[in-house]
Structures are given as structure tokens and as C-alpha cells.
Design a protein around this nucleic acid. Sequence first.
DNA 1: TCAAATTTGGTTGTGCGCAATTTAATTTTG
DNA 2: CAAAATTAAATTGCGCACAACCAAATTTGA
Lengths: 146, 146
Amino acid sequence: MSGEKNYECLRLGNQMCFPLYAASREIVSRYKAPLDEIGLTYTQYITMLVVWEHNVISVKDIGKLLYLDSGTLTPLLKKLEQKGYIERKRDSSDERLLNVSLTEEGLALRDKALEVPEKVACTIDLAPEEVSFLCRILHKLIGEKE
Amino acid sequence: MSGEKNYECLRLGNQMCFPLYAASREIVSRYKAPLDEIGLTYTQYITMLVVWEHNVISVKDIGKLLYLDSGTLTPLLKKLEQKGYIERKRDSSDERLLNVSLTEEGLALRDKALEVPEKVACTIDLAPEEVSFLCRILHKLIGEKE
DNA sequence: TCAAATTTGGTTGTGCGCAATTTAATTTTG
DNA sequence: CAAAATTAAATTGCGCACAACCAAATTTGA
């Protein structure tokens, strides 16, 4: 009964995971040059996106939005604090919560960051419908988390 | 002239990069449980996929297929060698090349690995057309590398 | 009311990814 | 042919991701 197993499903090209993994790394890598100019890494950048949107937000809520845990966020937020872009303060009504807030420098950085998505977007050769379809499917995958 | 800048493009939801990054991590994380059972990490797994397909392949060619460099592959391949799944030998006709080949144990592991893509696939709630469309677009993104 | 359970963030350790540099082997060229 | 250029892999160092564990604050519920 054995000897003739079908290993087709183990081919690199026959699993969705690999193109997803490779495309993610490829796109993230395109942020490197523009982000180097403003001195942020990719993860620091998406963290700043969240802080810019909320002005004040807890580590817990950043984690929910980015799907990252404290093991990733704690050292990253300390680094952003060192760079002077954010402040970290315990919430006075619940000392378990750590609130992250924007500094003046952090707010100023936002203007410089405006160029980043522009520079990346023009390297992506997809039709608008392809982008929106892609986003819809990806959100479906992410949404399956909960 | 300033004061009323449009920061819409800096919203987390308005860039393709984030859902791609999040979905990639989400899907890779679904491999963890099945891969734990056979003692491989995700990157070790896709490396074994390539070795299973080729039986003998150089580090250079593995890198081309997975878009990974020696900084990632060298320690990973040493670990796979320690586990007894592969052998590493310099190519006799070009000593710069390091050929990776399957051991008996490595070949046997392939049968156990057959369950992995099955277990992951059934956690992905996408229609077949969605999967194929997704793969097509992702390959378009990856293909832009060259 | 107070002990148990939960929540939040921090810490530690492992394994990638990737840039930058190094070393050795091979190929190209003057 | 010998020097220069190229190529392949290894090494080093940094920054994530993530699991596992911990401590402190808060909530709960008997």
C-alpha cells in the first residue's frame, strides 16, 4: 500500500504559505530605504502609525491593533522613547496599563513620514482592483484569528 | 500653506503592507502546532520542502528559491544537519558550493510531514478561487524582485 | 472581606531575516 | 600566466516575533 505516496502537497509552489511569507518580506523590505531616511525600522514605523492615529494609547491596545505582544513591544517602545518620539506613563486609574503618548518630536516626525508610503506605493506594480481584492482577502485571513 | 496636511495615507488600514505582514505571521503561526509534532520550525520546514524536491541542492540554489541568504541559511542548515535530516558537503568540482543532501532520516521525515499542509489547509477559510487569485497576486509581488 | 483568578506589562531565551564584512575558490583579463 | 574581479558561504551584530515565565495591580466571588 505504500511506496507510491503523493508528495505533491509538499511542493513549495503548492502551498499558500510560501508566497505570502515571501511577499510580506519583499514588501517590508521596500520600506527599508525610505524608513532609513527617517531613522525607523518597519515595526517601529507601524507602531508610530498607531500612536499618530491615537495620540495616547495603551501598550495593550497597540498590541491588539498590530497583533504583537509585550515581548516585542516593550523593547521597541523603549527604543522609541529613547529616540524621543513617545513617552511611556502608567495609567493613573489603572496602574497595570502603560499609556504611550506622542512627544513634540514624535508629532514632527509625522510630516517626514508622509513621504514613506508614497515612495513605497510607486514600486508596487498592481492595479487598484488587485490591491483592494488582495487587502480584502488578507483581512479575511487575519480576521480568522478571533 | 501647512496646518491642514492630509495624513490619511499614514493610517494603518490604508497601506497594503500591514495586512500582508499580519496575514503572513498569522498563517505561519498556524504551522507551529503541526510542525512542533515533527520537530521543525517554519523556516526549517520550507527548507526541507526544497531539499525533498531536489534531493541534492546547493545552499546558493536554496537561497534563490526561498529568497534567503547565507546569514539565515548557514545556521539553519547546520541545525538540520545536527538533527540528522541532511548532510552538507562541498561540491568536488567547485569548492565554493556547499551541497545539501537528504539522509535516510530526512527522507523518512517526509512521510510525517505529509500531515502538515493538510492540518493547516483546513484552518484556512477561503474559497479555492480566492486562494488561486491570492497566489497569483502574491507571485506578481514576489516576481517584481528581479 | 479576602483569597483566588485575571489582566497587564516586563523579562528571558530561541530562531529567524538581513545588512555588512570576511575568507576561500574560481573566473576574467590585461 | 598573474593580478583583479567575481562568486559562495561563513561570521557578526542588530532587531524583531514569539513562547514561557514572572510580578504587580485589579477584579471576582465565595
